[in-house]
Amino acid sequence: MPQGCFLSSENQTTMNSSSNITTGTQKKTSVFGLVFGMMAAPGQLLQKSLSNVSWAVAYGVSGVAFLLFFLQTGLDMMRAGKMDTEEVVLLSGLGLLYGTLGVMMVGVFAWAGIQGFGKTHNMQEILRAFGLAYSPTLVYAVCGLIFNVVLEWNTAVAFGVTGLLWALNPISATIRHYCDDKTVPAVVLTTICGLLMLVGWAFLGGVL
């Protein structure tokens, strides 16, 4: 993996071997720091500029989260005899696509909504925050996959949907941050973004 992949092109400065992000003005933030920071205290992380976080990291988090989530959905269905291996691989690929392009589209919708509520912000920063907002989904997806593979539990709903729901907190924190702490726009946009992601998963997972 090229060393600069964790840094956006406009902010590449230095990076050490443990994938830490360093700029001239900001402290190092590891990928783990970003994931757990976004999960536990998104408001504090958003106080710092996210412009030094590369697209690869931001959408790597959401992409891998949904890949693993959809993989669990496929494994559950395969166990129930509703899917074969090829379909599980295809569904996982769809998950990766959904976790990158889908999340980005929802991010664009949120950005447009924030603009609609009269707040002008940099779209790139909002989109990066949206990718990172799926950090809880990634953590739940990794835990769920372990239980799914080792204990053969059906984990798509228990871990997958739970992870998706826990992402709503960083999402609402992101929207609230960029709406200058206005509650109503943040609640409306969070609800719509949550619905879009839930319906999208249901559609792709063949639940509909």
């Binding site: 709903v157 228990a158 729901l165 609640v187 969070t190 949550g194 619905l195 839930l198 639940v207």
Partner: peptide
Amino acid sequence: AFFVPFVVLAIVADGFFEWHAAQAF
């Protein structure tokens, strides 16, 4: 106020998709 999105999602999940997972929500 930020509890409201979860209530809406729980209603949609139960009412439209018949996922009885309100506890997670």
